Deep mutational scan, measured.
Amino acid sequence: AQASVVANQLIPINTYLTLVMMRSEVVTPVGIPAEDIPRLVSMQVNRAVPLGTTLMPDMVKGYA
């Protein structure tokens, strides 16, 4: 199964992502692939992302 990117903490709206904020986990539904974690660093979330939430492409500015 493919691992997705999951929030490792509460990520406030407009926060620039860093490695410590994200982890990879096999979840349903599938979100942003874990292999894209390096690409996500320094990208901004466009909403608050609670701890344990799967990151979806529409949550990250400029990802989709």
Rank of each mutant, 00 (worst) to 15 (best):
G62D: 12
N8D: 11
A1P: 14
L19F: 14
D58S: 13
V5N: 01
G31S: 03
G52W: 06
S24Y: 04
Y63L: 05
I13Y: 14
N14K: 13
K61V: 13
A64W: 04
A3K: 14
M22K: 00
E35C: 03
M59G: 04
S4E: 01
G52A: 09
V27K: 09
Q2E: 10
Q2C: 03
G62S: 12
V20H: 14
L10C: 04
T28P: 02
N46P: 03
T53S: 12
V6G: 01
A1Q: 15
A1G: 05
S24T: 06
T18M: 15
P12C: 03
A3W: 06
M59C: 03
D58F: 08
V60S: 01
V30I: 13
T28I: 13
M56E: 07
S24C: 03
L17I: 12
E25T: 08
Y16L: 09
V30L: 09
M43T: 06
N46L: 11
N14S: 09
Q9E: 12
M43W: 04
V27G: 04
R47N: 12
R47D: 10
M22H: 00
V49Q: 02
G52R: 06
S4V: 02
R47G: 08
I37A: 14
V49P: 01
L19Q: 10
L17Q: 00
V30T: 15
Q9C: 04
A3T: 08
V26I: 09
S24V: 07
A64D: 10
T54Y: 02
L55N: 00
P38S: 05
A1L: 15
I11M: 06
T18H: 15
V30K: 08
P50S: 15
T28M: 15
N14W: 11
N8A: 11
N14E: 11
P57C: 04
V20I: 09
L51I: 15
A64V: 13
L17D: 00
R23K: 14
V30Q: 14
M59N: 05
T54S: 08
D58N: 14
A34C: 04
M59Q: 07
L40V: 12
L55T: 00
P50K: 09
Q44A: 07
V27M: 05
M43I: 04
Q44R: 12
L51D: 09
E25L: 10
G62L: 08
Q44I: 10
D36N: 14
D58A: 09
E25C: 03
Q2M: 15
G62F: 10
V20L: 13
M22P: 00
Y63I: 06
P12Q: 07
S42G: 14
G62P: 08
V5R: 00
V49I: 15
Q9W: 08
T15W: 05
A7D: 01
I11R: 00
M43F: 13
N8I: 07
S4T: 04
A64H: 06
L17Y: 01
N46R: 08
L40T: 01
A34K: 15
V41F: 12
N46S: 15
A48S: 15
I32Y: 02
S42H: 15
P38K: 15
M43A: 10
S24A: 08
I11S: 02
P33D: 06
A7G: 04
L10Y: 15
Y16F: 11
R23Q: 05
M56S: 10
P33R: 13
V5M: 02
P29K: 05
R47V: 13
S24N: 09
V30H: 12
